[in-house]
């Protein structure tokens, strides 16, 4: 039932259908699967939301998740969380579920594909200036790239790119390498040890989702707050 062979680095290599440049591979299929679970699950739970003191356990579960994300965002941004919640929350929930589902046999985490992590990192790369411009205006935002002097402009740009690359590679490397380790361990010691490694994989998946979304939030917050600080000066 293995989708990927041991020599396959990325699920991108598992191609189901291809026509010209349009390729439907395992990465896309499992992404849609995770998306479907999230969307259908959200719809099922939120179609009958209770505003009373008594409410369902699923609603409670979602409220805990959303509430925790809001709290984290509020702590980092030092302001209202609702503006950043859809982006940061979706990043965390998507990556988290994509990683945690790796315990299901036959499933391949889309985050073990550099294409997916790069897409997410680029989304962050685009979101940071968008939030900054929305907050302060384009002029004020781009002024930051020339502070303290114009000499720092290339370093700012390099920083932006490098951290985006780091985001992408960090998530991809962790998840992919873990899957490979599991596959190798299954071949070497089929009993018990892979179970422990799977449990560790859950922890790593959760931590990586947390790191990715928290870093994204930190980048956004640092951009907006840095502009605010200079504006105050």
């Amino acid at each position: 039932m293995e989708i990927m062979t041991i020599d396959m680095i990325s699920p991108d290599q598992v191609i189901y259908w291809q026509w010209k440049f349009i390729t439907i591979n395992a990465t896309l299929v499992y992404t849609w699967l995770v998306m479907a679970i999230l969307i259908v699950g959200s719809w099922l739970v939120t179609r009958k939301l209770s505003k009373e003191i008594r409410f369902s356990r699923w609603q409670n579960f979602l409220e805990v998740i959303v509430g925790s994300i809001r709290e984290e965002i509020r702590e980092i941004s030092k302001e209202g969380a609702d503006h950043y919640l859809p982006f940061i929350g979706t990043l965390f929930i998507f990556i988290c579920l994509a990683n945690l589902m790796a315990v299901i046999p036959g499933y391949v985490a889309p985050t073990s594909s550099l294409t997916t992590t790069a897409a997410l990192a680029v989304s962050v790369f685009i979101a940071v200036p968008l939030y900054g411009i929305t907050k302060q205006g384009a002029r004020e935002y781009f002024k930051e790239y020339f502070r303290p002097t114009f000499i720092f402009f290339p370093f700012h740009v390099m920083g932006e790119f490098s951290r985006t690359l780091a985001l992408a590679v960090r998530l991809f490397g962790n998840i992919m390498s873990h899957e490979k380790v599991i596959a190798i361990l299954l071949a070497v010691t089929p009993l018990f040890f892979p179970v422990v490694m799977q449990a560790l994989g859950l922890l790593i998946g959760l931590i990586q989702a947390y790191i990715f979304s928290i870093l994204a939030m930190v980048y956004i917050a640092s951009a907006t707050q840095a502009h605010e600080e200079h504006a105050q000066e």
Binding site: L38, V66, L85
Partner: peptide
């Protein structure tokens, strides 16, 4: 998710 999850949950 903004439509189905966050908006509704936060409102509730």
């Amino acid at each position: 998710l903004k439509w189905l999850l966050y908006g509704r949950i936060i409102k509730a």
